[in-house]
Design a protein around this nucleic acid. Structure first.
Lengths: 154, 154
DNA sequence: GCTTGACCCTGTAGCGACTCAAAGGTTTTA
DNA sequence: TAAAACCTTTGAGTCGCTACAGGGTCAAGC
Protein backbone atom coordinates (compact mmCIF):
# COMPACT_ATOMS: atom_id res chain seq x y z
CA UNK A 1 0.00 0.00 0.00
CA UNK A 2 1.04 3.63 -0.45
CA UNK A 3 1.61 6.10 2.34
CA UNK A 4 -1.82 7.68 2.51
CA UNK A 5 -3.52 4.32 2.80
CA UNK A 6 -1.18 3.34 5.60
CA UNK A 7 -2.01 6.64 7.25
CA UNK A 8 -5.73 6.02 6.86
CA UNK A 9 -5.53 2.52 8.31
CA UNK A 10 -3.45 3.60 11.29
CA UNK A 11 -5.36 6.85 11.74
CA UNK A 12 -2.14 8.71 11.35
CA UNK A 13 -0.99 10.92 8.51
CA UNK A 14 1.59 10.82 5.78
CA UNK A 15 3.84 13.53 7.15
CA UNK A 16 4.04 11.86 10.54
CA UNK A 17 4.88 8.54 8.90
CA UNK A 18 7.72 10.10 6.92
CA UNK A 19 8.87 11.74 10.13
CA UNK A 20 8.92 8.39 11.97
CA UNK A 21 10.94 6.92 9.13
CA UNK A 22 13.46 9.74 9.40
CA UNK A 23 13.64 9.18 13.16
CA UNK A 24 14.22 5.46 12.66
CA UNK A 25 11.01 4.32 14.37
CA UNK A 26 9.65 2.84 11.18
CA UNK A 27 11.98 0.93 8.89
CA UNK A 28 12.44 2.38 5.43
CA UNK A 29 9.72 1.34 3.05
CA UNK A 30 10.60 -0.16 -0.30
CA UNK A 31 9.96 2.06 -3.29
CA UNK A 32 7.88 1.74 -6.42
CA UNK A 33 9.29 2.56 -9.86
CA UNK A 34 8.12 6.10 -9.43
CA UNK A 35 9.83 6.36 -6.03
CA UNK A 36 6.65 6.06 -3.98
CA UNK A 37 6.96 4.38 -0.59
CA UNK A 38 5.32 0.95 -0.55
CA UNK A 39 4.23 -0.48 2.80
CA UNK A 40 3.32 -3.93 4.08
CA UNK A 41 1.10 -5.20 6.87
CA UNK A 42 4.19 -5.36 9.10
CA UNK A 43 4.61 -1.61 8.75
CA UNK A 44 1.00 -1.07 9.65
CA UNK A 45 1.33 -3.23 12.73
CA UNK A 46 4.41 -1.36 13.88
CA UNK A 47 2.85 2.03 13.23
CA UNK A 48 -0.17 1.04 15.30
CA UNK A 49 2.16 -0.01 18.10
CA UNK A 50 3.84 3.37 17.96
CA UNK A 51 0.50 5.12 17.94
CA UNK A 52 -0.65 3.29 21.03
CA UNK A 53 2.51 4.25 22.82
CA UNK A 54 2.07 7.89 21.80
CA UNK A 55 -1.54 7.76 23.00
CA UNK A 56 -0.02 6.79 26.35
CA UNK A 57 2.16 9.90 26.11
CA UNK A 58 5.41 8.02 25.78
CA UNK A 59 8.26 9.90 24.17
CA UNK A 60 9.74 8.66 20.91
CA UNK A 61 12.82 7.69 22.92
CA UNK A 62 10.79 5.46 25.21
CA UNK A 63 9.06 3.94 22.20
CA UNK A 64 12.40 3.26 20.57
CA UNK A 65 13.40 1.32 23.69
CA UNK A 66 10.22 -0.74 23.57
CA UNK A 67 10.73 -1.46 19.88
CA UNK A 68 14.22 -2.73 20.62
CA UNK A 69 12.73 -5.20 23.08
CA UNK A 70 10.11 -6.29 20.61
CA UNK A 71 12.92 -6.95 18.17
CA UNK A 72 14.95 -9.09 20.59
CA UNK A 73 12.44 -11.51 22.11
CA UNK A 74 15.06 -13.58 23.93
CA UNK A 75 15.83 -10.76 26.33
CA UNK A 76 14.26 -10.38 29.69
CA UNK A 77 11.48 -7.82 29.72
CA UNK A 78 12.35 -6.35 33.11
CA UNK A 79 13.44 -3.19 31.33
CA UNK A 80 10.00 -2.89 29.75
CA UNK A 81 8.44 -3.13 33.18
CA UNK A 82 10.82 -0.55 34.53
CA UNK A 83 10.13 1.86 31.70
CA UNK A 84 6.42 1.55 32.25
CA UNK A 85 6.75 1.95 36.01
CA UNK A 86 8.72 5.13 35.51
CA UNK A 87 6.21 6.38 33.02
CA UNK A 88 3.36 5.74 35.45
CA UNK A 89 5.29 7.62 38.09
CA UNK A 90 5.63 10.64 35.80
CA UNK A 91 1.92 10.63 35.15
CA UNK A 92 1.05 10.35 38.82
CA UNK A 93 3.38 13.17 39.75
CA UNK A 94 1.98 15.35 37.01
CA UNK A 95 -1.56 14.73 38.19
CA UNK A 96 -0.58 15.84 41.68
CA UNK A 97 1.02 18.99 40.35
CA UNK A 98 -1.99 19.84 38.25
CA UNK A 99 -4.32 19.35 41.20
CA UNK A 100 -2.23 21.77 43.24
CA UNK A 101 -2.28 24.12 40.27
CA UNK A 102 -6.05 23.92 40.02
CA UNK A 103 -6.33 24.79 43.70
CA UNK A 104 -4.12 27.84 43.24
CA UNK A 105 -6.01 28.97 40.18
CA UNK A 106 -9.35 28.69 41.95
CA UNK A 107 -7.99 30.62 44.93
CA UNK A 108 -6.87 33.29 42.55
CA UNK A 109 -10.20 33.33 40.73
CA UNK A 110 -11.99 33.95 44.04
CA UNK A 111 -10.06 37.18 44.44
CA UNK A 112 -12.02 39.07 41.83
CA UNK A 113 -15.78 39.29 41.52
CA UNK A 114 -16.87 40.20 37.99
CA UNK A 115 -17.21 43.73 36.76
CA UNK A 116 -14.38 45.46 38.56
CA UNK A 117 -11.89 47.76 36.95
CA UNK A 118 -8.52 46.23 36.28
CA UNK A 119 -6.97 48.59 38.80
CA UNK A 120 -8.90 46.81 41.54
CA UNK A 121 -8.67 43.33 40.03
CA UNK A 122 -7.78 40.89 42.76
CA UNK A 123 -6.37 38.42 40.27
CA UNK A 124 -3.77 40.80 38.91
CA UNK A 125 -2.96 41.76 42.45
CA UNK A 126 -2.65 38.12 43.51
CA UNK A 127 -0.27 37.41 40.65
CA UNK A 128 1.94 40.27 41.79
CA UNK A 129 2.35 38.82 45.26
CA UNK A 130 5.58 36.96 45.99
CA UNK A 131 4.06 33.63 46.95
CA UNK A 132 3.23 30.63 44.76
CA UNK A 133 6.44 28.66 44.75
CA UNK A 134 6.50 25.72 42.45
CA UNK A 135 7.49 22.35 43.87
CA UNK A 136 9.72 20.83 41.24
CA UNK A 137 8.84 17.63 39.47
CA UNK A 138 10.62 16.54 36.34
CA UNK A 139 10.16 15.40 32.78
CA UNK A 140 6.48 16.31 32.81
CA UNK A 141 5.10 19.24 30.83
CA UNK A 142 2.64 22.07 31.25
CA UNK A 143 -1.08 22.29 30.71
CA UNK A 144 -1.10 23.44 27.10
CA UNK A 145 -0.51 21.99 23.71
CA UNK A 146 0.11 18.35 22.92
CA UNK A 147 -3.28 16.83 22.35
CA UNK A 148 -4.51 19.41 19.90
CA UNK A 149 -2.23 17.88 17.31
CA UNK A 150 -3.25 14.29 17.82
CA UNK A 151 -6.88 15.12 17.62
CA UNK A 152 -7.54 16.55 14.22
CA UNK A 153 -5.85 13.90 12.18
CA UNK A 154 -6.58 10.76 14.14
CA UNK B 1 21.22 45.88 39.02
CA UNK B 2 22.68 43.68 36.30
CA UNK B 3 21.02 40.74 34.67
CA UNK B 4 22.34 37.96 36.85
CA UNK B 5 21.27 39.72 40.01
CA UNK B 6 17.80 40.20 38.59
CA UNK B 7 17.81 36.52 37.71
CA UNK B 8 18.88 35.58 41.21
CA UNK B 9 16.24 37.73 42.86
CA UNK B 10 13.46 36.43 40.65
CA UNK B 11 14.80 32.88 40.70
CA UNK B 12 14.97 32.99 36.96
CA UNK B 13 18.03 33.05 34.73
CA UNK B 14 19.74 35.49 32.43
CA UNK B 15 18.93 33.73 29.19
CA UNK B 16 15.26 33.55 30.01
CA UNK B 17 15.24 37.24 30.87
CA UNK B 18 16.83 38.18 27.55
CA UNK B 19 14.30 35.92 25.87
CA UNK B 20 11.40 37.70 27.59
CA UNK B 21 12.85 41.01 26.44
CA UNK B 22 13.00 39.77 22.86
CA UNK B 23 9.42 38.56 23.17
CA UNK B 24 8.27 41.92 24.51
CA UNK B 25 7.17 40.64 27.92
CA UNK B 26 9.81 42.67 29.70
CA UNK B 27 10.52 46.18 28.54
CA UNK B 28 14.03 46.85 27.28
CA UNK B 29 16.47 47.59 30.06
CA UNK B 30 18.63 50.68 29.92
CA UNK B 31 22.29 50.06 29.23
CA UNK B 32 25.50 50.84 31.08
CA UNK B 33 28.51 52.38 29.33
CA UNK B 34 29.77 48.91 28.60
CA UNK B 35 26.43 47.91 27.12
CA UNK B 36 25.29 45.83 30.08
CA UNK B 37 21.56 45.71 30.78
CA UNK B 38 20.65 47.67 33.93
CA UNK B 39 17.42 46.78 35.71
CA UNK B 40 15.21 48.49 38.28
CA UNK B 41 12.84 47.25 40.96
CA UNK B 42 10.01 47.67 38.45
CA UNK B 43 11.62 45.11 36.20
CA UNK B 44 11.97 42.71 39.09
CA UNK B 45 8.33 43.12 40.01
CA UNK B 46 7.22 42.47 36.48
CA UNK B 47 9.47 39.46 36.10
CA UNK B 48 8.08 37.99 39.30
CA UNK B 49 4.58 38.52 37.95
CA UNK B 50 5.54 36.67 34.79
CA UNK B 51 7.13 33.89 36.79
CA UNK B 52 4.01 33.42 38.87
CA UNK B 53 1.95 33.16 35.74
CA UNK B 54 4.36 30.62 34.26
CA UNK B 55 4.23 28.66 37.50
CA UNK B 56 0.50 28.51 36.85
CA UNK B 57 1.32 27.11 33.41
CA UNK B 58 -0.01 30.09 31.51
CA UNK B 59 1.36 30.60 28.02
CA UNK B 60 3.35 33.69 27.19
CA UNK B 61 0.37 34.80 25.11
CA UNK B 62 -1.95 34.61 28.11
CA UNK B 63 0.60 36.47 30.20
CA UNK B 64 0.86 39.19 27.57
CA UNK B 65 -2.91 39.64 27.85
CA UNK B 66 -2.71 39.95 31.62
CA UNK B 67 0.13 42.44 31.34
CA UNK B 68 -1.97 44.56 29.00
CA UNK B 69 -4.68 44.68 31.64
CA UNK B 70 -2.20 45.57 34.33
CA UNK B 71 -1.07 48.41 32.12
CA UNK B 72 -4.58 49.81 31.56
CA UNK B 73 -6.19 49.92 35.00
CA UNK B 74 -9.31 51.74 33.84
CA UNK B 75 -10.55 48.79 31.85
CA UNK B 76 -12.92 46.22 33.15
CA UNK B 77 -11.24 43.06 34.27
CA UNK B 78 -13.90 40.69 32.99
CA UNK B 79 -11.41 39.53 30.39
CA UNK B 80 -8.98 38.60 33.14
CA UNK B 81 -11.66 36.52 34.80
CA UNK B 82 -12.50 34.85 31.51
CA UNK B 83 -8.88 34.04 30.78
CA UNK B 84 -8.46 32.48 34.18
CA UNK B 85 -11.72 30.52 33.91
CA UNK B 86 -10.57 29.09 30.60
CA UNK B 87 -7.21 28.26 32.03
CA UNK B 88 -8.79 26.43 34.95
CA UNK B 89 -10.89 24.49 32.50
CA UNK B 90 -7.78 23.37 30.60
CA UNK B 91 -6.17 22.20 33.80
CA UNK B 92 -9.24 20.28 34.89
CA UNK B 93 -9.57 18.58 31.54
CA UNK B 94 -5.91 17.64 31.54
CA UNK B 95 -6.21 16.13 35.00
CA UNK B 96 -9.05 13.95 33.79
CA UNK B 97 -7.08 12.82 30.78
CA UNK B 98 -4.06 11.95 32.87
CA UNK B 99 -6.18 9.96 35.31
CA UNK B 100 -7.55 7.92 32.44
CA UNK B 101 -4.02 7.52 31.16
CA UNK B 102 -2.83 6.30 34.54
CA UNK B 103 -5.59 3.73 34.56
CA UNK B 104 -4.58 2.44 31.14
CA UNK B 105 -0.92 2.31 32.09
CA UNK B 106 -1.66 0.34 35.25
CA UNK B 107 -3.82 -2.09 33.30
CA UNK B 108 -0.96 -2.56 30.92
CA UNK B 109 1.55 -3.01 33.72
CA UNK B 110 -0.55 -5.80 35.18
CA UNK B 111 -0.09 -7.79 31.98
CA UNK B 112 3.48 -8.73 32.67
CA UNK B 113 4.88 -10.26 35.85
CA UNK B 114 8.63 -9.65 36.22
CA UNK B 115 11.26 -11.94 34.79
CA UNK B 116 9.63 -13.03 31.57
CA UNK B 117 11.33 -13.04 28.22
CA UNK B 118 10.36 -10.17 25.95
CA UNK B 119 8.75 -12.68 23.59
CA UNK B 120 6.14 -13.38 26.25
CA UNK B 121 5.92 -9.85 27.62
CA UNK B 122 2.30 -8.96 28.14
CA UNK B 123 3.05 -5.26 27.92
CA UNK B 124 4.52 -5.41 24.46
CA UNK B 125 1.62 -7.60 23.47
CA UNK B 126 -0.87 -5.18 24.97
CA UNK B 127 0.64 -2.30 23.06
CA UNK B 128 0.26 -4.24 19.83
CA UNK B 129 -3.47 -4.68 20.34
CA UNK B 130 -5.79 -2.35 18.41
CA UNK B 131 -7.55 -0.75 21.37
CA UNK B 132 -6.68 2.37 23.38
CA UNK B 133 -8.35 5.18 21.50
CA UNK B 134 -7.55 8.62 22.74
CA UNK B 135 -10.42 10.94 23.62
CA UNK B 136 -9.37 14.32 22.29
CA UNK B 137 -8.87 17.31 24.54
CA UNK B 138 -7.13 20.46 23.37
CA UNK B 139 -4.40 22.92 24.19
CA UNK B 140 -3.05 20.69 26.95
CA UNK B 141 0.22 18.83 26.60
CA UNK B 142 1.61 15.40 27.36
CA UNK B 143 3.22 14.01 30.47
CA UNK B 144 6.83 14.86 29.71
CA UNK B 145 9.06 17.87 29.66
CA UNK B 146 8.16 21.32 30.87
CA UNK B 147 8.98 21.30 34.55
CA UNK B 148 12.45 19.89 34.15
CA UNK B 149 13.53 23.27 32.85
CA UNK B 150 12.04 25.36 35.61
CA UNK B 151 13.56 23.21 38.28
CA UNK B 152 17.26 23.35 37.88
CA UNK B 153 17.60 27.06 37.68
CA UNK B 154 14.95 28.28 40.07
C1' DG C 1 -4.08 13.77 -26.55
C1' DC C 2 -4.81 16.95 -22.90
C1' DT C 3 -6.17 18.78 -18.79
C1' DT C 4 -7.51 18.42 -14.15
C1' DG C 5 -7.04 16.87 -9.72
C1' DA C 6 -5.36 13.72 -6.45
C1' DC C 7 -1.65 11.80 -4.92
C1' DC C 8 3.54 11.35 -4.14
C1' DC C 9 8.46 13.16 -3.43
C1' DT C 10 12.30 16.12 -1.03
C1' DG C 11 13.71 19.85 1.67
C1' DT C 12 13.01 23.43 4.70
C1' DA C 13 10.84 26.28 8.18
C1' DG C 14 7.73 26.84 11.94
C1' DC C 15 5.54 26.03 16.67
C1' DG C 16 6.55 27.19 22.40
C1' DA C 17 9.47 28.32 25.81
C1' DC C 18 13.29 28.18 26.51
C1' DT C 19 18.57 26.33 26.71
C1' DC C 20 23.18 26.08 25.26
C1' DA C 21 27.38 27.17 22.95
C1' DA C 22 30.60 30.14 20.38
C1' DA C 23 33.25 34.08 20.17
C1' DG C 24 34.12 38.04 21.88
C1' DG C 25 34.20 42.36 25.37
C1' DT C 26 34.35 44.01 30.52
C1' DT C 27 34.92 43.91 35.33
C1' DT C 28 36.33 42.04 39.56
C1' DT C 29 39.40 39.52 42.33
C1' DA C 30 43.85 37.40 43.75
C1' DT D 1 48.80 41.47 35.69
C1' DA D 2 46.40 37.55 34.91
C1' DA D 3 42.67 34.67 35.73
C1' DA D 4 37.97 34.16 36.82
C1' DA D 5 33.55 35.76 36.52
C1' DC D 6 30.58 38.31 34.36
C1' DC D 7 28.36 40.51 30.19
C1' DT D 8 27.23 40.90 24.99
C1' DT D 9 25.18 39.05 20.36
C1' DT D 10 24.14 35.42 17.27
C1' DG D 11 22.68 31.14 15.99
C1' DA D 12 21.40 26.52 16.73
C1' DG D 13 19.21 22.79 19.41
C1' DT D 14 15.22 20.65 22.05
C1' DC D 15 10.37 17.66 21.06
C1' DG D 16 6.92 15.84 17.98
C1' DC D 17 5.18 16.93 14.77
C1' DT D 18 2.83 20.29 10.89
C1' DA D 19 2.86 22.98 6.83
C1' DC D 20 4.59 24.74 2.84
C1' DA D 21 7.20 25.23 -1.63
C1' DG D 22 8.34 23.30 -5.77
C1' DG D 23 8.44 19.61 -8.15
C1' DG D 24 7.09 14.57 -10.21
C1' DT D 25 3.35 10.75 -11.15
C1' DC D 26 -0.96 8.84 -12.20
C1' DA D 27 -5.92 7.98 -13.28
C1' DA D 28 -10.21 9.85 -15.07
C1' DG D 29 -12.91 12.61 -18.07
C1' DC D 30 -13.37 15.35 -22.33
Amino acid sequence: MKISELARLARSNAETIRYYEREGLLSKASRSESNYRIYTAAHLERLIFIKHCRNLDMTLGEIRTLLRFKASPEENCGEVNRLLDEHIEHVVRRIGELQELERQLRDLRECCPDGRQAAACGILEGLSQPSLEKTPGNHVPGVHASFANNINKS
